[in-house]
Lab assay of single mutants.
Amino acid sequence: DRIFMTRTEALEFLLKAHQTAVDKIGHPSHKQTPADHAAIEALDRLLLDVRARRVDQFQINASAAQIIVTD
């Protein structure tokens, strides 16, 4: 599946995904793992790359739809 978004929409989408990941590892019942921190770092890099126009398409994980940034 493909989803087309403007750059602004894609950045909002990534910010929400980032916040969800941060909230998940901050929850008291969740045991933090290196994979959790790696996922947040990957989202940080992706946010910067989309914002800087170095990336025009991405996929958060293998089961997610491919996001295509349109400007």
Rank of each mutant, 00 (worst) to 15 (best):
D1M: 00
R2T: 15
I3M: 09
I3W: 06
F4Y: 15
M5F: 03
M5W: 01
M5T: 00
T6C: 04
T6P: 03
R7F: 12
T8I: 13
T8M: 13
T8N: 12
T8D: 14
T8V: 13
T8Q: 14
A10W: 01
A10R: 00
A10N: 00
L11F: 04
E12S: 15
E12K: 08
E12A: 11
F13I: 09
L15Y: 12
L15I: 12
L15G: 09
L15M: 14
K16T: 08
K16L: 12
A17P: 00
A17V: 13
A17N: 03
H18E: 02
H18C: 06
H18I: 15
H18Q: 10
H18T: 05
Q19L: 06
Q19R: 10
Q19G: 05
T20A: 15
T20E: 15
T20V: 12
T20S: 14
V22F: 06
V22W: 04
D23W: 02
D23A: 14
K24M: 10
K24W: 07
K24D: 05
G26V: 10
H27K: 12
H27Q: 13
H27N: 13
P28F: 02
P28L: 08
P28I: 10
S29E: 13
H30R: 08
H30L: 08
K31W: 09
K31V: 13
K31I: 13
K31L: 12
Q32D: 12
Q32W: 15
Q32P: 15
T33W: 06
T33C: 06
T33G: 09
T33E: 09
A35F: 09
A35K: 09
A35D: 10
A35P: 06
A35V: 08
A35W: 06
H37V: 14
H37R: 14
A38D: 10
I40V: 13
I40P: 02
E41M: 06
A42T: 13
L43M: 05
L43F: 03
L43P: 00
D44S: 15
D44P: 01
D44I: 14
R45P: 00
R45S: 05
R45H: 08
L46N: 00
L46F: 02
L47A: 04
L48M: 12
L48E: 15
L48H: 15
D49C: 05
D49W: 03
D49H: 04
D49F: 02
V50G: 00
V50M: 03
V50P: 00
R51W: 05
R51C: 06
A52K: 09
A52T: 12
R53N: 12
R53W: 03
V55L: 08
D56T: 14
D56P: 03
Q57I: 13
Q57M: 13
Q57D: 05
Q59I: 09
Q59N: 05
Q59Y: 12
Q59V: 07
Q59E: 05
I60L: 11
I60H: 04
N61H: 14
N61S: 13
N61M: 10
N61G: 12
A62L: 11
A62N: 13
S63M: 12
S63R: 11
Q66D: 04
Q66C: 07
I67S: 01
I68L: 05
I68W: 07
V69A: 02
V69E: 02
T70W: 07
T70I: 15
D71F: 03
D71C: 05
D71I: 14
D71G: 07
